[in-house]
């Protein structure tokens, strides 16, 4: 489903590569965890899926489509197929829970009827039914991340990219988010998770890709946190 072929990346005004000749294949329905020190290249690798970064050399494929060649006008459509969750939640502060989730459907051109059917359902799944009218600033970190997760899932994406989604959360909220990610994966969504949390990685026992200095150093199908 996702293929990285000899991918290298050097940022502008930088001499050291953040990614060096990375070769990876991720199959549909997989739950893949990326671990490594800060600066190992995990985030850059994930950003290439939703075309926020492009490789300096090599190719990235999503459903056999080469992302490198993606024209700017197709970028919104491409991103609508991918759910993204970040450490800092990236919620729209001007919009309440309902509006934040609905926004993802609005930009995808869904009708009002579809929105009114799907949004409450997904908010219910992430357990925020009682906070539907609240604004991000009125929510805890864990709750905000659940809103972000609901927004990422509402368009039923094929893949969910989660970059340190539990980085700012307490252990209980962390585990709640992980439970949700596992559940989503069970329904067939491919999950790509970058994390520093050893406890999380060890407990879920899924495929672990360890990275260091821009290279993949380990790739275990049922791995533990090991760098």
């Amino acid at each position: 489903m996702i293929i990285y072929n000899k991918v290298s990346k050097i940022y502008k005004n930088d001499t050291k590569p953040v990614l060096q000749n990375v070769n990876l294949e991720i199959k549909e329905g997989e739950f893949v965890t990326f671990v490594g020190y800060s600066g190992a290249g995990k985030s850059t690798l994930l950003k290439m899926i939703y075309a926020e970064e492009m490789p300096t050399s090599g190719e990235v494929y999503f459903h056999k489509k080469k992302i490198n060649d993606l024209k700017k006008r197709y970028l919104p459509k491409h991103r609508q197929q991918i759910g993204t969750v970040f450490q800092d939640y990236k919620l729209l502060t001007q919009k309440n829970v309902w509006q934040n989730v609905a926004f993802a459907m609005e930009v995808a051109g869904k009708t009002q009827a579809e929105i009114e059917e799907d949004v409450p359902q997904i908010i219910d799944i992430v357990g925020l039914k009682s906070k539907i009218d609240k604004y991000p600033e009125e929510l805890s970190g864990g709750e905000q991340q659940r809103v972000a997760l609901a927004r990422a899932l509402v368009n039923r994406p094929k893949v969910l990219v989660a970059d340190e989604p539990t980085g700012n959360l307490d252990p209980i909220s962390t585990w709640e988010i992980m439970q949700l990610l596992l559940k989503i994966n069970e329904f067939g969504t491919t999950i790509m998770l970058a994390t520093h949390d050893k406890g999380v990685v060890d407990r879920i026992s899924k495929r672990v890709i360890s990275m260091d200095k821009g290279k993949v150093i380990r790739d275990d199908l049922k791995g533990k946190y090991c760098i």
């Binding site: 491409h78 991103r79 919620l91 926004f103």
Partner: peptide, 15 residues
């Protein structure tokens, strides 16, 4: 920041 988020969610430039 809101503009950056909108684009990440898949909003077109026009939107």
């Amino acid at each position: 920041r809101a503009i950056e988020i909108m684009k990440l969610v898949g909003a077109s430039n026009l939107y």
